Computed example of a mutant assay.
Amino acid sequence: MNTQAIPAGLGRMKGKAVLITGASNGIGYATALLFAAEGARLIINDIAAERLEALREIIAAAGNDVQSVVGDVSKDADARAMVAASVSAFGRIDVLVANAGIIPEFDLLTATAADFDHVMAVDGRGMFLTCKYAAEAMLQSGGGAIVCLSSISGEAGQSGQAVYGPAKFVASGITKHLAVELATRGVRVNAVAPGTIATAALAKLSDEYVAGVTSRHPIGRVGRPVEVANAILFLASDEASFITGVVLPVDGGYLAQ
């Protein structure tokens, strides 16, 4: 379990109401800590209730307004409830970080239709639902920023990702289409596309797969969750006020090849 303390910040999210899905581990966890350090008021979500509560306690102990909402982003009622929690607690939602997702390793011949449907439900439908209800609330309060989690697998083909990769192409597509749809209405939509990142999800993949994909990162190592969180913070902040529809690689040069 993560036990990081909250670092000192610069107030870039001061007073902003932020919903982070999939917050109990990995990139979501690092993002929650970083946004808390920057002064955000947080709604954190995950299906892992115990880990989520531990994170809530860390953030609350640092003096931030924070509530946890256990729920499955692929379920319409749960996605609605996450956004409603922010509106109820803070009167609005300013930022959505649509991070929740699963990373199974399937090639085309071993994947089943059920595998495909499950990944698409979480990584595709779940992102659509949280973006839908967050944008709906943002439009009622003057705008906001959405940052989706895509992947290098959502920007380029990879062996062994016949299910996850297409789901992340959905994430990249949602980002671009919603950015155009919402641009004149005060809602910016961007995404990050992480390369191989040192998370618990990575540890579940085969050593052969991880070694192979890591070796293809020109920078010579895997990334750290906080390095992705820093990019998410930038895209969500007012510093990125003229940026929308971007899928930003955070990948050690992987996609530059």
Rank of each mutant, 00 (worst) to 15 (best):
M1C: 02
M1S: 14
I6M: 07
P7E: 12
P7S: 13
A8R: 14
A17F: 09
L19M: 13
G22S: 11
S24K: 02
I27P: 06
Y29G: 02
A30H: 07
A30R: 04
T31C: 02
L33D: 01
L33W: 02
F35D: 10
A36M: 00
L42C: 07
I43D: 07
A48E: 15
A49V: 13
E53P: 03
A54H: 14
A54E: 15
A54N: 13
R56P: 00
E57I: 03
D65N: 06
V66S: 08
V70W: 03
G71L: 00
G71Y: 01
D72V: 04
V73L: 04
S74R: 14
A79V: 09
A79D: 04
A81N: 11
V83R: 07
A84Q: 15
A89W: 02
R92L: 00
I93R: 10
D94T: 08
V97G: 08
A98T: 13
A100W: 08
F106V: 00
F106D: 09
L108H: 03
T112P: 02
A114M: 01
D117H: 09
V122I: 15
G124I: 09
R125T: 15
T130E: 04
C131Q: 12
Y133I: 01
Y133L: 00
A134L: 08
M138V: 13
L139C: 07
L139I: 10
L139D: 09
G143K: 10
G144Y: 06
G144T: 10
A145G: 03
A145Q: 05
S151D: 06
E155G: 00
A167N: 03
A167L: 03
K168A: 06
F169L: 10
I174Y: 13
I174L: 15
A179Y: 09
E181M: 10
T184S: 15
R185T: 09
V187K: 12
P194G: 11
K204E: 15
Y209V: 03
R221H: 13
P225W: 02
V228S: 05
V228C: 11
F242Q: 12
F242S: 08
I243F: 01
V247F: 08
L248T: 12
L248E: 08
V250T: 13
G253S: 12
Y254C: 09
Q257K: 14
